[in-house]
Write a protein that binds this DNA or RNA. Structure first.
Lengths: 135, 135
DNA sequence: ACAATTACCTATTGACATGGTAGGTAATTG
DNA sequence: CAATTACCTACCATGTCAATAGGTAATTGT
């Protein structure tokens, strides 16, 4: 039941970008230094955020990254789903599709896991990067 | 962000015990067979539940396990905390104790993680074994 | 006495995920 | 020409998960 560094680092980058952006591009090297995160490691985390259209990366001298959306319009849930994968506490694919389920007692817990997933996602979707900045 | 088999198995055992108990003791071998879980593996999961006074184990012929509380008085959160450890999405001990925190941006996320933990625990504490049985 | 059963211990294994490190090429831009 | 992202491969060390295996001891009903 842990969120890994991928997701936590991504959040820190988003906050950093939001705080230091006046529209110009920010080199990832700066952020890596500021946040004390390996540049190479960050390099492997960011593409999913670019792909999703949340940030933009520009090559060349003076290039770097920039937010494409307002901090108030980016939710924590969004970032974590992109970097961590689905925020589901249990991956219960084993039951899905094959009915009747072979593990009765196990599937009796499925509605609860589904609801837990909903609770988690609802909360994380309600928090924005902007809200985090104001802490 | 996953709940491991330890917690999931423990829940299945609790449901099984609740369903098959008329006060008598149930051999763990029966449950292992019924739930298709390795007996040896179960043997290592149960002690924490015994220690917490949720179930009782009796040795000797005719012995086995039994619930010590009503299914309606045992919460899922309780079982998972005993078998999985603390249900916190982030173990942010690094900041605690040392002020001022060295990672400003990271700690800006702490209140959110705390709240997420609360949300998760609140939900899981609201669901009882009895409720699961009725699914 | 005997069989059943939990209680408790150690050790090992295979698979997988995590959290990086290292090094390179290509493309783009001021 | 230098800076910078984009994208790639490969590797590694550590830890966790999910068991498996085997044993001893203690307890209990019959």
């Amino acid at each position: 039941m842990k969120v890994s560094t991928r997701g936590r680092y991504a959040l820190r980058v988003m906050i950093d970008l939001a705080e230091h952006s006046g529209g110009e591009y920010i080199a990832m090297r700066e952020i890596a230094a500021r946040q004390a995160i390996s540049l190479k490691y960050l390099e492997r985390i960011l593409p999913s955020l670019v792909e999703a259209g949340i940030i933009e990366g520009v090559q060349g001298k003076g290039g770097g990254y920039r937010l494409l959306k307002q901090p108030g319009e980016i939710s924590v849930g969004e970032i974590l789903r992109l970097t961590e994968g689905e925020l589901a506490p249990v991956s219960c694919d084993s039951c899905v599709g094959q009915l009747p389920c072979t593990r009765t007692a196990d599937c009796r817990t499925k509605p609860m896991w589904d609801e837990l997933k909903r609770v988690i996602n609802d909360y994380l979707d309600s928090v924005t990067i902007e809200a985090l900045m104001k802490q």
